[in-house]
Amino acid sequence: KTELCRTFSESGRCRYGAKCQFAHG
C-alpha cells in the first residue's frame, strides 16, 4: 500500500476499512 486513500484522508473513515487497497496512514 503506497498510495494514500483519499476517502480516509478527507473524511477519516473508509467503508473498505482494512480491506481498502489504499493506505490509511
Rank of each mutant, 00 (worst) to 15 (best):
G25S: 10
T2F: 11
R15H: 14
Y16I: 03
G17K: 01
C20A: 02
A18M: 08
Q21G: 05
T7L: 05
C14S: 06
H24A: 04
F22E: 12
R6F: 05
F22L: 10
Y16G: 09
K19H: 10
G25K: 03
K19P: 11
A23T: 09
Y16C: 09
C14L: 00
G25H: 07
G17A: 01
E3P: 05
G12V: 02
C14M: 06
R13D: 15
F8S: 11
G17C: 04
L4K: 03
C5Q: 11
C14Q: 05
T2G: 11
G12M: 03
G17W: 01
K1F: 10
G25L: 09
C14D: 07
R6W: 03
S11F: 13
K1R: 02
Q21W: 02
T7C: 06
A23S: 14
G25N: 11
S11D: 15
S9R: 04
K1S: 05
R15N: 09
G12H: 06
L4M: 14
E10C: 00
T7P: 01
S11A: 07
E10L: 03
F8P: 04
R13W: 14
L4T: 05
S9W: 05
F22K: 15
R13Q: 15
R15M: 05
S9A: 06
T2K: 03
F22W: 08
E10P: 04
L4A: 13
T7A: 12
A23H: 10
L4I: 09
Q21R: 06
K19L: 04
R15W: 07
S11I: 07
G17Y: 00
C14P: 07
E10Y: 01
L4N: 08
F22R: 07
R13V: 13
R15V: 05
A18T: 04
A23Q: 15
R6N: 08
L4P: 12
G17R: 00
R15P: 15
F8C: 03
R6H: 05
S9F: 08
R15D: 14
R13P: 04
A23C: 14
E10D: 08
T2C: 02
Q21C: 04
A23K: 12
K19V: 05
G12E: 04
E10S: 13
R13K: 15
S11Y: 08
R15G: 11
C14A: 03
K1C: 08
Q21D: 10
K19N: 15
E3T: 06
C20I: 03
R13H: 15
C5N: 07
H24Y: 00
T2Y: 10
E3K: 06
A18C: 05
K1H: 02
S9Y: 08
C20P: 14
R15L: 12
Y16V: 10
G17T: 01
C20R: 02
G17F: 00
H24P: 02
G25F: 07
F8Y: 10
T7Q: 11
A23G: 08
T7F: 12
A18L: 03
E10H: 01
K1P: 00
Q21F: 05
E10G: 07
C20K: 05
T7V: 04
F22I: 01
F22Q: 09
H24G: 03
S11C: 07
A18S: 04
L4D: 11
G12W: 00
E3W: 00
R13E: 15
T7D: 12
G17P: 09
C5Y: 01
A23R: 12
R13T: 15
H24W: 00
C20Q: 01
L4C: 10
T7W: 06
L4F: 11
G12P: 00
K19G: 13
R6Y: 02
C5E: 09
S11H: 13
C14Y: 02
K1A: 07
F22G: 13
F22H: 08
S9K: 08
G12Q: 08
G12Y: 02
Y16Q: 08
S11L: 11
L4Q: 05
S9E: 09
R15E: 14
T2D: 13
C5K: 06
C5T: 07
E10T: 14
Q21E: 13
G17Q: 06
F8A: 11
E10M: 11
E3I: 04
C20N: 00
F8L: 08
S11Q: 15
C5A: 04
F8T: 12
E3S: 06
L4G: 06
F22N: 13
A18V: 05
C20L: 01
K19S: 10
F22M: 12
E3V: 03
Y16M: 13
E3L: 04
Y16P: 07
Y16L: 10
S9G: 05
Y16E: 10
G12S: 05
G17S: 02
K19F: 08
E3C: 10
S9L: 08
G17V: 01
C14K: 06
A23W: 06
C14V: 03
A23N: 08
C5W: 00
F8R: 09
G12A: 06
F8K: 15
R6V: 08
F8V: 04
L4S: 07
R6I: 09
R6D: 13
T7G: 12
R15C: 09
S9T: 11
C5H: 04
T2A: 10
K19Y: 05
A18N: 14
F8N: 15
S11E: 15
T2W: 00
G12D: 00
C20S: 04
T2V: 10
H24I: 02
K19E: 14
S9V: 03
S9N: 11
S9I: 11
F8M: 13
F22T: 03
A18W: 11
F8Q: 15
G25Q: 05
C20E: 04
S9D: 13
S9C: 04
T2N: 14
R15T: 15
E3N: 09
S11G: 13
C5S: 05
Q21L: 06
K1D: 09
R6P: 13
R15S: 12
C14W: 00
R13G: 13
A18Y: 02
C20G: 04
T2S: 08
F8W: 10
G25E: 13
E10R: 08
R15K: 12
G12C: 00
H24D: 06
T2L: 06
S11W: 04
G17H: 06
S9Q: 02
A23M: 11
A23Y: 01
H24C: 07
F22D: 12
T7S: 13
R13M: 15
G25V: 11
G25A: 09
C20V: 02
Y16W: 12
A23P: 09
K1I: 11
G25M: 08
G17D: 01
R6C: 07
E3F: 05
S9M: 13
A23E: 13
C5P: 03
T7E: 15
S11R: 09
F22C: 11
K19D: 15
A18I: 06
T7R: 09
K19M: 09
A23D: 11
F8D: 14
T2H: 08
T2I: 14
E3A: 04
H24Q: 02
K19T: 15
E10K: 08
Q21K: 11
Q21A: 09
Y16T: 02
S11N: 13
L4V: 12
K1M: 10
A18F: 01
Q21T: 04
L4R: 06
C20D: 03
C14G: 05
T7N: 14
Y16K: 00
A18R: 03
G12R: 01
C14I: 03
C5V: 01
G25W: 05
C14E: 07
E10I: 08
C20W: 00
R6T: 12
C14R: 02
R6E: 15
Y16A: 12
S11V: 12
Q21N: 12
R15F: 13
C14N: 02
G12I: 01
A18P: 08
S11K: 13
E10Q: 10
H24R: 01
Y16S: 09
E10W: 00
H24V: 02
C20H: 01
F22Y: 13
R13S: 15
R15A: 14
F8I: 03
F8G: 12
H24S: 02
F22V: 08
R13Y: 14
T7H: 07
C5M: 02
E3G: 05
R13I: 11
H24K: 02
A18G: 09
R6Q: 11
C5D: 09
G12T: 04
G12L: 01
A18H: 05
A18E: 15
T2M: 10
C20Y: 07
T7I: 10
H24E: 02
T7M: 15
S9H: 03
T2R: 06
L4Y: 14
G25I: 07
R13A: 15
F8E: 14
A18D: 15
C14F: 01
K19A: 04
R13C: 14
R13L: 14
K1Q: 01
T2E: 07
F8H: 15
H24F: 00
R6K: 13
G25R: 10
E10N: 08
K1W: 02
G25C: 06
R6M: 10
K1V: 05
G17M: 00
C14H: 04
R15I: 14
Y16N: 12
S11P: 03
K19R: 10
Q21M: 07
E3H: 12
A18Q: 06
K19I: 01
R6A: 11
T7Y: 11
S9P: 05
C5F: 00
H24L: 01
C20T: 05
T2Q: 03
G12F: 02
L4E: 11
K1L: 02
A23I: 12
S11M: 14
G17I: 01
A23F: 10
K19C: 04
C5R: 03
H24T: 00
G12K: 09
E3Q: 06
A23L: 09
L4W: 03
R15Y: 14
G25Y: 10
T7K: 12
C14T: 07
E10A: 13
G17L: 00
R6G: 09
G25T: 10
T2P: 01
F22A: 12
Y16D: 13
R15Q: 14
Q21I: 12
E10V: 03
E3M: 09
Q21P: 13
G25D: 14
Q21S: 07
R13F: 15
A18K: 10
E3R: 04
H24N: 03
G17E: 10
K1G: 06
G12N: 00
G17N: 00
H24M: 01
E10F: 00
Q21V: 03
K1N: 14
K19W: 01
C5L: 03
Y16H: 12
F22P: 07
A23V: 08
C20M: 01
Q21Y: 06
S11T: 15
C20F: 00
R6L: 07
Y16F: 07
E3Y: 12
R13N: 14
K1T: 09
F22S: 11
Y16R: 06
K19Q: 13
C5G: 07
G25P: 11
E3D: 02
K1Y: 09
K1E: 14
R6S: 07
